[in-house]
Simulated scan of single mutants.
Amino acid sequence: MKNQWITFFTGKVLVKVEGQGIERFINEMTRSKIAVWQVKRMGEQTFTFYLSLNDLHNFRRAVRKFGCRVTFLRGQGSPFLWKRALKNSGFLLGGISFFVMILLLSNMVWGISIKGASPQTQYEIEKQLQEMGIKKGKFQFSIPDVESIQRELSNRMNNITWVGVELKGTTYHFQVVEKNEPETAEEIGARNLVAEQKAVIKEVFVEEGMPMVEVNDHVQKGQLLVSGLIGKEDQEKKEAVSAKGVIRGEVWYITKVELPLETDFEVFSGDEKVKHYISFGKFRLPIWGWGKIDYKKSIDEQDEHKLKFLKWELPLTYTEKTVREKEDVTRKYSRKEAVITAKELARNNLKAELPEDAEVTGEKILHEQIENGKVRLNVHFKVIEDIAVGQPIIQGD
């Protein structure tokens, strides 16, 4: 008996043979290596048996030598199934189209639910999701995974403490915890304003308290700028208040920076190729993006999404693989270019440490040196900033 799977794919035919000398005819087929199986006697001169579709041509040639009547009862196997399917191609295409349509609809976003947020915060979240490409009608495999969505949304929203993201079926569920920042009046006790560091006074604005310095005065760190004790000079006991004001002074900073004259690093060339696969276990079927990638250096990024059919998760994975080309670049500076770049670097480093309202008004290179392939600078900066800090007034002062 032939292997059932092989005969299913190659096809088989049920044959009825009638006439005299059928036994000699079957023996002749055996000598001609024409395989038959499930031979049954239906009468004194009638047999039925199965014949491989591949042997049909040799069978017809052999049967001509015998005076037998041959009837082909039915064909079985994939060739005959395919032939029947082609006869009913409308139903076949309709079935395939229906399956593909349900598969696509099952992997689209049809709902976005946001809970725990005020109407204003919900509007802001929806706006951010639109910018991130998360909206109804988008395919799920073109959207980042839930961890990436949660991380990106947390970085974009400053008024939420936590956001949870969950994908259920075709709906994204967002659970939001907003920041609770009750506005409480700041209670400040009696205090003076003193200099935080050495400076030359440039602006004096006192809201409450008695100013003790004027414009162009040189002050040292800890020197009294605005007194929280107010009253007449001859008055023994003065009123203690919380001194308030802005005292802007010119402060000096020296920033040291070094910069290599020659640096090797890797950059993306801007050229990239995207491949799409449908994976089943370790087997990968490419569906878009064929051809060999011949980049000398590259980095691969893969985004995987499980495919679903209605509410069931299929053992199929859609994979989008992005291959980005990298190239080695050597950056070289002349002495003049290195000094200019180093000054800019020193300025940016200083600004990162200064308050937002501080203003850099001048700069000067104090020391310049090139050694071991590096330029080293000491840069002097003039900065105008608020130098006043509070100092509590202790009873008895």
Results as ranks from 00 to 15, higher is better:
1 M>V: 13
1 M>S: 13
2 K>V: 15
2 K>H: 12
3 N>H: 11
6 I>Y: 12
8 F>K: 01
9 F>I: 14
10 T>H: 09
11 G>T: 08
17 V>F: 01
17 V>C: 13
20 Q>V: 13
21 G>Q: 04
22 I>T: 12
26 I>L: 15
27 N>G: 08
32 S>F: 08
41 R>C: 06
42 M>R: 15
42 M>S: 10
43 G>A: 10
47 F>N: 10
48 T>F: 04
53 L>Y: 12
55 D>W: 07
63 V>H: 11
66 F>Y: 14
68 C>Q: 05
71 T>H: 08
76 Q>A: 11
82 W>K: 12
83 K>G: 13
85 A>F: 06
90 G>P: 00
91 F>S: 13
99 F>P: 01
100 V>D: 08
103 L>N: 03
104 L>V: 06
105 L>Y: 04
111 G>V: 06
112 I>Y: 01
112 I>N: 01
119 P>A: 03
121 T>Y: 07
124 E>Q: 15
153 L>N: 04
154 S>M: 07
165 V>E: 02
168 K>M: 07
168 K>A: 12
171 T>Q: 14
173 H>N: 13
173 H>Y: 14
174 F>A: 01
174 F>R: 05
175 Q>Y: 05
175 Q>R: 13
178 E>I: 02
185 A>I: 14
186 E>R: 09
189 G>F: 07
191 R>P: 07
197 Q>C: 07
199 A>N: 01
200 V>C: 06
201 I>S: 03
204 V>I: 04
209 G>L: 10
210 M>N: 10
212 M>P: 05
213 V>P: 04
223 Q>R: 08
226 V>A: 03
230 I>G: 03
235 Q>G: 03
236 E>P: 15
237 K>Q: 14
239 E>N: 11
243 A>W: 06
248 R>H: 04
251 V>F: 04
251 V>N: 08
252 W>V: 13
255 T>K: 09
261 L>G: 10
262 E>D: 11
264 D>I: 11
264 D>E: 15
265 F>K: 05
267 V>G: 02
267 V>A: 12
269 S>K: 14
272 E>I: 04
273 K>D: 08
278 I>Q: 11
279 S>H: 01
282 K>N: 15
284 R>D: 15
286 P>R: 06
288 W>F: 14
295 Y>D: 04
297 K>Y: 12
302 Q>I: 15
306 K>R: 13
309 F>D: 01
314 L>I: 06
318 Y>R: 08
318 Y>L: 07
320 E>K: 15
325 E>D: 08
330 T>R: 13
332 K>M: 10
332 K>I: 13
335 R>S: 06
335 R>T: 11
336 K>A: 11
337 E>N: 06
339 V>A: 06
341 T>N: 06
341 T>V: 13
349 N>P: 00
353 E>P: 00
353 E>L: 15
353 E>K: 14
355 P>A: 10
355 P>R: 09
357 D>W: 09
361 T>D: 00
364 K>L: 04
365 I>Y: 01
366 L>M: 12
367 H>W: 00
371 E>V: 15
372 N>W: 02
373 G>A: 02
374 K>P: 00
375 V>K: 00
375 V>D: 01
375 V>A: 02
376 R>S: 10
379 V>F: 00
380 H>F: 12
381 F>P: 00
383 V>F: 03
383 V>S: 08
384 I>W: 09
384 I>E: 10
389 V>Y: 03
390 G>M: 07
392 P>A: 14
397 D>I: 13
